[in-house]
Amino acid sequence: MTDTTQEPVHSSNQTGDISRSYWSDVWRQFRSHKGAMAGAIVFFGIIFATLLGPWFYNVDATFIDIRSRNQGPSFDHPFGTDQLGRDILARMMAGGQVSMAVGMTAMLISLILGTLVGVLAGYFKSLDGPLMRLTDLFLALPLLPLLLVIILLFRDPLNAAFGPEGGIFILMVSAIGITSWMQAARIVRGDVLALKEREFVLAARSIGTSRTMMIMRHILPNVLSPIMVSATLGVANAIITESALSFLGLGFPPDFPTWGRLLFDGVDYLQQYPERVIFPGVAISLVVLSVNYMGDGLRDALDPRIRGR
C-alpha cells in the first residue's frame, strides 16, 4: 500500500482526467471506502501505540513490583498489574510490537508461499500433481513434532547468526509460515483452475500474452478476494499460534510478553481479574478486524468493475 503514495495526489482532484494512473485510481477508491479507512486508522493507530507508546509511558514491561500485584486499573497503572506486579499497559505495548510483527510477517510468508504454489499448480498442468501431493503431505504432518524438529535443527545456527531474539523471531515466523500455507494454496489453485478456462483468459492467450504477464495481469487480480480472506484469518492464526508455541517453550523466553501469552496467562484469572483477558483479547480482535476491513477495501479498489461506480 505504500506504493500508492508515489503518485501525485493532486491528480485525483481532477476527476475525469484521462491520464489518471492505475495506482492513484486504486488509492482514490480505497479512500472512499469508509470501512477500509477506519480499518487503516485503527491498524496504524495500534502500530503507533505499540511503537511510540513506550516513549511516553516509560515503564519496564518485565519489572516486578511484587508489593503492587493484582491491582486493578489506577492512575499509576492505567491497565492494572498482573500476578507479579508487572504493569499490564507496558506489557501490552511491548507484547503488541512482537505480536504484530509475528502476525504480519508469518501471514505474508504463508500467503506468498500459498499463492505461489496455488497459481503454479492451477496454471501449469504438469506441476499440479506434484505440488498438490506436496500440499497433502504438509497437511498430514503433525504440527507439534514438526515444530520440535525445526527448532531442534535450526535454533542454534539461527541464534548464532542473528542473536537470540532475532534468531527466535525468524524461526517463529518461518515455522508458522511454512505450516500454514496449504489452505491458501488449495483455494487459489481451485480458483485458478476455473479461471484459466474463462473467455478473457482464452482471449488474452490468443493474442500471445506471455505466461508471466497472464498470471500477473489476468489471473492474480481475480483470485485476490480469497487471498484477502486468507490474509485476515492468517493474522489471527499467527498471533494465536505464536502464543501456543511460546507456551510450549518453543518460542520466545517465558518473560517475554506477547498478546497471545497475556491472554493465555489471563484465562486462569478470568473470574477474579477479567480485565487481564479483555485487554489482549480486544487488541487481537481489533487488529484482525482492521486487517479484514483493509482487505475488503483493497479488494474493492483493485476490482475495475467496482471502481468504475
Partner: peptide
C-alpha cells in the same frame, strides 16, 4: 456478520 465472524475467529477457543 463480519464483526461476529472476526471476533469468533480471533478470540481463541481456550478463552
Amino acid at each position: 456478520g463480519t464483526f461476529v465472524a472476526m471476533v469468533g475467529f480471533s478470540v481463541p477457543t481456550f478463552f
